[in-house]
Design a protein around this nucleic acid. Sequence first.
DNA 1: TTTAGCAGTCGAGCATTGAGAGTGCTAACA
DNA 2: TGTTAGCACTCTCAATGCTCGACTGCTAAA
Lengths: 336, 336
Amino acid sequence: MDERLTERKKKVLQALIDRYITSVEPISSGDIQKKYLPDVSPATIRSELSHLEEMGYLIKPHISAGRVPSSKAYRYYVENFISDEDIDLEQLRKNISQNYDSVVEIVRNGAKIVSDVTNYTSMLMIANSDTLTIKDIKLLDMYDGSALVLIITDSGVIKDKEIKLPKIEDNYVEVANGLLAKSFAGKTLSQILSSQMQVDLDSELEDFRQIFEGVFELLSEYKKSREGQLFVEGADKIFDYPESKNYDNVKNFMSLVGKKEKLQELMKDDADIEFSIKIGAEDAAGLDNMALVSAKYHVKGKEVGQLGVIGPERMDYKKVLSVLKQLGKIIDNLDD
Amino acid sequence: MDERLTERKKKVLQALIDRYITSVEPISSGDIQKKYLPDVSPATIRSELSHLEEMGYLIKPHISAGRVPSSKAYRYYVENFISDEDIDLEQLRKNISQNYDSVVEIVRNGAKIVSDVTNYTSMLMIANSDTLTIKDIKLLDMYDGSALVLIITDSGVIKDKEIKLPKIEDNYVEVANGLLAKSFAGKTLSQILSSQMQVDLDSELEDFRQIFEGVFELLSEYKKSREGQLFVEGADKIFDYPESKNYDNVKNFMSLVGKKEKLQELMKDDADIEFSIKIGAEDAAGLDNMALVSAKYHVKGKEVGQLGVIGPERMDYKKVLSVLKQLGKIIDNLDD
DNA sequence: TTTAGCAGTCGAGCATTGAGAGTGCTAACA
DNA sequence: TGTTAGCACTCTCAATGCTCGACTGCTAAA
């Protein structure tokens, strides 16, 4: 989009969006003139508006109403009108430190925090664990025919689970431990779970096949259990928006928020972008009149998931972006 | 409530409710006469209806409309008109076995299953862990200044976590293990976490205070992390109900479903009842025009949580109860 | 006790109306 | 060429009144 807007058109557009975001009612030429551009007449603004409408930035609900921003306008808005200075860091910090004790709690409650602070519906999706690296695997004999499997990973997470042991010979567990470490240490979860590697092991380590199969099963179960888990908070926030006056909006919103798979899909879409903003149905099917802002989260530099906000297209992008950014920093910078 | 209803009144009431549950529109005298009691005239039914209304079982939305059941009517209905025979066991079994492989998955997806099958919003709450019994606690030296804590409980759950070790002397971990086992084995989580016991230990085991404190912390964190976790599925189901035509209904419903604390409270209320049915605001504040059916869940005889359905007051109680009962049996009877 | 008949009540749907809000256009002006 | 005032036009919204249809409650008779 290399359409250039004149300075005045920019001003008008920004004024209209700013105003619309707070009032959520069609904005008229007189409105803008009074509060933002008192030096020109409403008629002038009308002609600017009508031009902006031609360019696709504005929509008229009907002929005798004011105008409303289009998705394109919001996109222009987030790209051009939002700067980092708008961020209110301290307030969020205070808010969080007042209500949450530990880091773990903050991460666990990420969605709730964001929803509380922004007053929009928000969601937290746990990153998939493909790049999780195994540091060590240990079997711990429980002396009752089973063993405890400990999987030590690079993100400090340890997965525990019991598996049944085959007939136990004296140093069976010990040997198995050595083999497991040798086979798995340093590998990522997805490397391990690729079928190729399974075949290799099958032929080489016949005696320990059972153990290995158990471990594979545990790993894949673990992976599955973490796969894109998604938590939604504040779904009822929509009733605080004026948009909820319109039944279809509520229904759309709710049916989207209810479909976790759909949300996961939306969140996953841009796995490689730090911040993603999707506005309206043109950006993602099903997002009619809605927008989704999401951000990656890291703990000690390692990606742990995504946090997102979903709300009406006219959401307060400044606020949402600043909250997501700040929370991201807070989470990433903590020393456990 | 020891009001006796005549046989005919019962018939009329049941007919009206049955009909209302499917049509969700006020039921008229003629309606009932035609489909249920063709041997008497509408006028007769009218007088019965007007009597039932006096008794508080029926409500007239307005004078020229038919009648609608009151909360009291639903209560009478679930207590008197539902028998166990109505249950359709096979279909549910099939449905579940088609879509889910393992028991773990069924438990994890309990809310989703119930929501899918009943077409109502449903929720799953994990039981609190007060009665969880510790079988053993083991420290596993990681040789990097920290140790892995393994807590082996009676429900096969094993909690894993690292804690920092104080200066390590040779057999420190070994001794600690002995002490931990001696102190904790056989106790329940709530026994351990009572402050009384902490004091005992403080005086007796000064050298290992740090370890014990670490373990206490882990246990209480564990408890907290499991405390009444609640998952809601199918919140958007309300849009399939005719009730959603009414904006206030939707809003009420959504704001209840959005408030997890409130839902937890409602679920916890009757912790000692196997099946609980709450109908309308008289049974629980905030439940206007809604009903909540919930049931305890057990795995191998041990309570693991509650499953509930929340929907309009006129929900299909037969179906919901049968699904909850059957799923309960399926979960309890499985051999891992 | 039951019933038929009938008057009475109310809601849903529809058309009509007037007020209010904004726009687009035109013609004049800088 | 860009800006402006003025005005006609369009459309929504809320209020009003109307009719139609659906039930009920009552009364009087069986």
